[in-house]
Design a protein around this nucleic acid. Structure first.
Length: 110
DNA sequence: CTAATGACGACAC
DNA sequence: CGTGTCGCCATTA
């Protein structure tokens, strides 16, 4: 991995770990905040890496796509992702879709 | 080195 | 307004 990638990795960690309880953000928002406008996919890539780094305490379950869908639920055991969000008073529009408009949190504002 | 893939997003039709 | 296609960037085959 290049140093540049590691930097991207850390930035995603920093932002995601600062998402307030009961709030969610999107891949695109994080990517845009970091500077990589169209690097939404890379955010998912970074979070995927975070799974092997539990010590960083990255609430990846608070990161959803721009539609509020839990795109990465398959990477969590069972319905862990959904349950965690429900515990944080996040309203679900559908079984695997949260009310992004109501719980959206802009990472750049913090 | 080239091709395909993916926890996405924007735009075209 | 739903569906399809292309673009992004790093990883994997």
């Amino acid at each position: 991995m290049s140093d540049k990638n590691q930097d991207y990795f850390e930035k995603v960690f920093t932002i995601v770990s600062q998402i307030p309880r009961g709030k969610v953000t999107t891949y695109g928002a994080i990517a845009g905040c970091i500077g990589v406008k169209s690097g939404a996919r890379m955010v998912g890539w970074a979070l995927n890496k975070s799974i092997g780094h539990e010590e960083y305490d990255v609430p990846a379950h608070r990161v959803v796509n721009r539609l509020g869908q839990l795109s990465g639920r398959g990477y969590f055991p069972g319905d862990t992702m959904r349950e965690l969000l429900e515990q944080e008073d996040v309203l679900f529009k559908e079984d695997y879709t949260v009310d992004i408009n109501k719980h959206f949190w802009d990472p750049c504002e913090e």
